[in-house]
Amino acid sequence: MSSQDITARAAPRTQRKWPAEVNILLVLIGIALVFEILGWIFQGQSFLFSWNRLKIMILQVSVIGIIAVGVTQVIISGGIDLSSGSVVGAVAMVAMSFAQVSTYARAVYPALTDLPMIVPLLIGLGCGAVVGLINGWLIAYTKIPPFIATLGTMVTVRGFAKWYTKGQPISFPTEGFAWIGSGMMPVVIFILVALIFHVAMKYTRYGKFTYAIGANAQAARVSGIDVERHLVKVYVIAAMLAALAGMVVAARGQTAQAGMGLAYELDAIAMAVIGGVSLNGGRGSILGTAIGMIIFGVIISGFTFLRLDAYYQEMIKGAIVVAAVVADVHRQRKRRKTS
């Protein structure tokens, strides 16, 4: 073999590839256009040019979007988190019980009413951190597959949520606490969370270690990364973001129920996967997940707009997730062939 062959093989396509997010953005635009056209045909009005509709759409997905940011970094690290929906329910209950007004006679803790908003907020985040610690410890140190470990906490934490008030809903929060769910606050919180983690994933050790572990945990270890400790951090952050989402939901509805957040984890995973986050780890971005979230929202509000049954929505949602995973697997296989 001559040295020319060698250089020829080492120099692949010189054309610079655009970032993967561009493709996802194109998908988003395509789907939006389809609904726009269908809108004019079947409803005689525009789908996109309705400020109100867009506002409702983004509000609908923002809460799950907060969870999806956490889930994204878990998936990039090569894992999965199924417990986030249960954390939403449990933290909604716990935080709300510390956020009740004194004028309500049947408060859970009558002695602890009218507390400043920061108290239930910190308690809620703390609860999330505990669940995250359990997840992370199980996964990093006992080497249980993330799927099983978080499936276990998913069931257990949901059970805790129901036990907390023996199934009774908790209502009447202080104005301060209700504020975090009011108006466009869920969207603002989502944008803040997404920005912080976009920066963290790209420009800090935390993010770089997460990608490295997801790409090749063995190589990460040899590079001097404490893989176990880092994984615990990743799961703690994911659970804390789910906790935050739980409090936003409770504050918005001004009530907490043990069944809140049911199946949110699946929607969050779906957003990440639609946004190009690879279930094999090491690939994806917060920006991609944000676009995935909007795709998700457009599809749901698009179906509502077209007055399609909610049952269809569910079925289509499932199909889209499977399609996104198939696309990812297909991409990997193609890559493996070319390399």
Partner: peptide, 25 residues
């Protein structure tokens, strides 16, 4: 492949992975 490269990451990230565990933060 097993214990060296981060195949899904780019060249720069691969070169830097050990360095940034110790310095340059």
């Amino acid at each position: 492949k097993e214990t060296g490269c981060f195949l899904t990451l780019d060249c720069l990230e691969n070169i830097q992975s050990a360095l940034i565990t110790r310095s340059h933060v």
